[in-house]
Amino acid sequence: MLNKLSKLSAIIFLASFFIVGCSPKNGEKTETVQYLTIKGSDTMVHLASDWAETFMKTHPNIEISVTGGGSGTGIAALLNGTTDICIASRKIKNKEIKLASEKGISPNEIVTSRDGIAVVVNPENPIKVLSIEQIGKIYTGAYKNWQDVGGPDQQIIVLSRESSSGTYVFFQEKAMKKKDYTQDAMLMPSTSAIIQSVTQDKWAIGYVGLGYGVKAQDKVKMLHIKDQANSPEISPSVASVQNDSYSLARPLHFYTNGALNGAAKEFVEFVLSKEGQKIVLESGYVPVD
């Protein structure tokens, strides 16, 4: 009896595989699969993959492939017509727009999300505000003591992400005016390691994506930032990143050729939808509005 039952259940089990295995094939016959390629910024690759994965679950007839290589590579690919959507963490340059019009391509810019970097210190550190110049001097090694920025006589422990991180380069460009990091900077393997370290070490300074900073607000203090020595101090927040008043932030773009249609249009609509923007927040970036 038991044996029969187990045989029967085995058959049902196998049959269910067969049925499940067959159904998408039937679907393919009626709808053709559309392919969409996305290429560009390494900063955005993970975010774009997260979007693509969620999107493909609800759109089985659209296949999306995401590759990195850098914003420049992505824009070049768009101009050469080898990608449908270019992801770029910088704006397209005038030279590139000119080149595009020569090739009969009209780049269409869509702001998908924003990337903000919060500079974090231990809650016990009395420093609340730093200017971009001061932050740059700390990270290049010109300032080595908290006294140099009006704090107590304590050595600054400089924490950075690994050099393979897109944030490392972004921070180097925006906060350090493209100068090299000090040799004393400790390169941490992950954002969570930076937060862990700032939590434990009273005189450490680090930088993390705004999303992570907000999540760890009870453990670390996010510094307010002044663009110039005499400009107003801006606190890092979703709002200040969205209205571009916070200095260590940048929009993350999609560039497409001309008006959107077909699969690309559906995908962009998804990205800008509530669900798409929720993924932005989950990945540690800032939604558009």
Binding site: Q154, Q155, I157, M186, A193, Q196, S197, Q200, D201, K202, W203, A204
Partner: peptide, 19 residues
């Protein structure tokens, strides 16, 4: 090491960081 040992080293030797 990151969570347990490095704070101990930091306090034991009076350092600014345990890394």
């Amino acid at each position: 090491g990151l969570v347990v040992l490095s704070p101990i080293i930091k306090h034991l030797f009076g350092l600014n960081t345990g890394l």
